[in-house]
Write a protein that binds this DNA or RNA. Sequence first.
DNA 1: GTGAAAGCGCTAACAT
DNA 2: ATGTTAGCGCTTTCAC
Lengths: 346, 346
Amino acid sequence: MSNQAPTLEDVAREAGVSRATVSRVVNGVRNVDPAIQELVHRAIERTGYAPNRAARSLVTRRAETIALVVSGAGDAPEEARGAFAARAFADPFFGRVVSGVVGFLSPRSMHPVLMFAESAEDRREVLTYLRQGRADGALVVSTHADDPLPALLADAKLPAVLFARPARPVPLSCVDLDHRDGGRLAAEHLLARGCRRPATVAGPLAVAASQERLAGFRDTLARRGHAHVPVAEGGFTLDSGIAAMERLLAEHPDVDGVFAANDLMAQGICQLLQERGRRVPEDVAVIGFDDSGIALACRPPLTTVRQPVEQMAAEMARLLDEHIRGARTAPASVVFDPELIVRETA
Amino acid sequence: MSNQAPTLEDVAREAGVSRATVSRVVNGVRNVDPAIQELVHRAIERTGYAPNRAARSLVTRRAETIALVVSGAGDAPEEARGAFAARAFADPFFGRVVSGVVGFLSPRSMHPVLMFAESAEDRREVLTYLRQGRADGALVVSTHADDPLPALLADAKLPAVLFARPARPVPLSCVDLDHRDGGRLAAEHLLARGCRRPATVAGPLAVAASQERLAGFRDTLARRGHAHVPVAEGGFTLDSGIAAMERLLAEHPDVDGVFAANDLMAQGICQLLQERGRRVPEDVAVIGFDDSGIALACRPPLTTVRQPVEQMAAEMARLLDEHIRGARTAPASVVFDPELIVRETA
DNA sequence: GTGAAAGCGCTAACAT
DNA sequence: ATGTTAGCGCTTTCAC
């Protein structure tokens, strides 16, 4: 027994046919006699043949692989890349993205290559990876509005799909949520349960989604007679949520309802409120955003605005697949609707 | 301008040298005249050349890619794969594994392919992926002790490194923690702060690590005069931790210290205790395990047994790299030491 | 319906 | 130190 992996040639010899025929059978091309198909399948079985992907890719010019890029905007030193990864996955959000992407890819026998782009060097690396043909396209999840990666990808004419619209328009397909409507949902629910002094802990205002959630919340409230809504800016992390709420309470001790721009901050806010002896929701109602696992882990369980992240991620993968196959050329923009999930905090 | 990507040939022509010379420059092989190197580099610049990886892999027989496999033991239907991914990433543990792996790989311009193996079909897929040469080896993180994947990998003689020793020995390198010592650390700390009625919420006993943590905890306590320690089995999830603690309290209302086999369950336990009006740590002390992000998000912050997951994951990658390069043939087993992190719950 | 043969772009052994 | 050349294993015309 040879130590070499069997090749098409070996299978062909074993089956008594030509390489071309084996190739046709392997690739499910028709015009092959059923009897011969059977013959070939048996030969494949016996030899334990597995097609060499490098050889196939060389001729098809397809890697059958896509990159899933979590992208920042900074210029972090190389050694911080691992830390960036850890930070990213600290929010269940990215786990849901992975879940959605895998849900689409996996039935197609594809698997994502995970990349983190936190510096100019990293971004170069992503570009190179794609240009080398190691992946056919990229799914990009940016954590900052001014991420340069989307534009680089578009300029290089590399297939890519974005999660969230970039700050400055880029000719790339993207998937997004109607964040403004999410803000509206939160405002109306707070009003409906009788809040008189609503406030909000916004996400980083450099992120477009934060701006939109805030605008939707504020506009709705304004239309209902609340001209001045207290706002504190957070950073989407637990600590920043707590700090922002502290500032809010210091200036407006009488708030009775707060909309947090994500669940992680909402969790921190609930903790702070309870430590300060305020009951949630009786004294202060809290609404989060995302409906991540955190929403259920919270005590009491969080009322929140759901973002169908898994579906959105799957749609990204679907769009990218279309672009790669050439089935779609013009960039598409798919916007999903948020949904209010009422639990116990509001 | 041609639409085709430039090849080695194009660069060679541009620089007025042979393909071989360009190849040498690209691969950093010495024995090339510095002047010519300069010439070639400029030609690469002008043409915007990026080496085709499929062609290179075809001859080197290296994909320069490794698979990161999160593996279960079940036989889930195909459509559940995404859900499995989501569940896995709900515990910050996996994010830390990714972080450690990326920390090692990324400086080497390598990126992991993410795979989830929750069924026999998925496992076949992992094997095929490797046999096709799409990845040079696998990093396997099993969620169950009776995961069949490690043995399959070993039988196929495919390079692989495991996180945690498998239930039945397999001739594969692995990285693990001294879980028993972790249990000891928890027991001694509880005793040192004066606990009289310690108990534990163990992890699923089908997992070797759970058994070891429990054994270390129990043995230490036994040696110090606590012959019978109440135990409730959890499932490493928040809910299961709460449920287990409820059973514990029902049978032993007087517990004054509890060791949870992971932070997620410890978090649930703290919540339950506080809802029942028991102060943590004054009435009941709580110690978690992992020192994941949750430990800090908890109120009060969790005292816990730290597992250096990032380091362990990086070590896995290092070992796999050695196996792939042929620098190591015999399986290695690297065991890390746990560390007690004292915060406020105990 | 099946086979023969020409590459895909690269590396590495050999020659010079 | 540089060039020549023979494949790596596969897909895909093009004949038959």
